[in-house]
Amino acid sequence: MTQSVPSRRHDIADDIRNQISTGRIKAGERLPSEAQLASRYAVSTPTLRSALAVLQGEGLVEKIHGKGNFVRYPCRRITYVGGGHALRTESPVEPALRVSIRTTNLQAHGQLTCLLGVSANSPLTEFLCLSHEGKSRSPHSLARIYVPRDLSPTDVPAESHCCKTVEAKLAELRPPLAEVRERVSARPPTPEEAATLRISSALAVLAITRVAADSTGRVVEAALLVLPGDRADAFFTTHHMTDERTSGE
């Protein structure tokens, strides 16, 4: 029997991976151009790109459109804490993430009408939160938060240390939350998500849909989170109520 021979793309990926792990190529450093790498390894450009795709899927390399391929800084873990009354992504590592926030007024359509339980064209406000890590401002996670227009604050900053700033502003206008429903699934990223987060389309993301309602049953917030699968954990705690039995008369 003949042994299988590793494909050329894996040979190339192994070599570049070794250079990264030994520090010969450092985090944040730009790799040579694809043409230069293809010439160095004596392979076609498609084969070279296939090798880079392996490294991109592992989270070691990111391709920035118009700039080239760069060695990624080590990914910080994200822990999504579910079951509570706040939208949180947490990490104990410093320095803190920076979050850019884009506010857009729009009308309910498609999935949003179902999530918020409103009729089509109802006025909503979207807060698009994109977290960035470190000096490279490498994208870290993506969240879209939707609220009815009458519950939308007007003083949300364009940049913050975390999405909790948006949550704090929302809490000022909305009634207390009575129910939070969360759905978690793993799926491939959409082309837009892959481009925004600079991840490979082959890397699965953790998609979290969170819907919060007040005591009347009105949905006051719907959030769609996208967390790259190479750095995300979801943590849920369930509190069980026990019956208190007292002696009767």
Rank of each mutant, 00 (worst) to 15 (best):
M1S: 11
V5Y: 09
P6I: 13
P6N: 09
R8Q: 14
D11N: 05
D14N: 09
D15I: 05
I16E: 02
N18M: 06
Q19I: 02
S21T: 08
T22P: 00
A27Y: 11
G28R: 04
E29T: 02
R30Q: 14
S33H: 02
S33E: 07
L37V: 02
L37C: 00
A38G: 01
A42L: 07
T45E: 09
T47P: 01
L48D: 07
L48G: 00
A53E: 12
A53S: 07
L55A: 07
L55R: 06
Q56M: 10
K63I: 01
I64Q: 08
V71H: 01
V71G: 07
R72I: 02
C75A: 12
C75E: 12
R76F: 05
I78E: 08
T79K: 04
Y80R: 14
S91I: 09
E94D: 09
A96Q: 12
A96I: 08
S100V: 12
S100C: 04
R102C: 02
T103K: 14
Q111N: 10
T113I: 07
C114K: 13
C114M: 09
L115E: 14
L116I: 11
L116S: 02
G117V: 08
G117R: 04
P123G: 07
T125N: 03
T125D: 04
F127Y: 15
F127A: 08
L128D: 13
C129W: 03
G134I: 11
K135H: 11
S138K: 10
P139Y: 12
P139V: 05
S141A: 14
S141Y: 14
Y146K: 01
Y146E: 05
D155G: 00
D155M: 03
C162D: 15
C162Q: 07
C163F: 05
C163A: 09
K164E: 14
T165L: 11
A168S: 12
K169W: 01
L177N: 01
A178F: 03
V180C: 04
V180W: 01
A186W: 12
R187W: 06
R187I: 10
T190N: 00
P191Q: 01
T196K: 09
A204M: 13
A207P: 00
A212I: 06
D214Q: 03
D214S: 05
A223L: 06
A223V: 13
V226H: 06
L227K: 00
A234I: 11
A234H: 09
T238K: 10
E244D: 08
G248H: 14
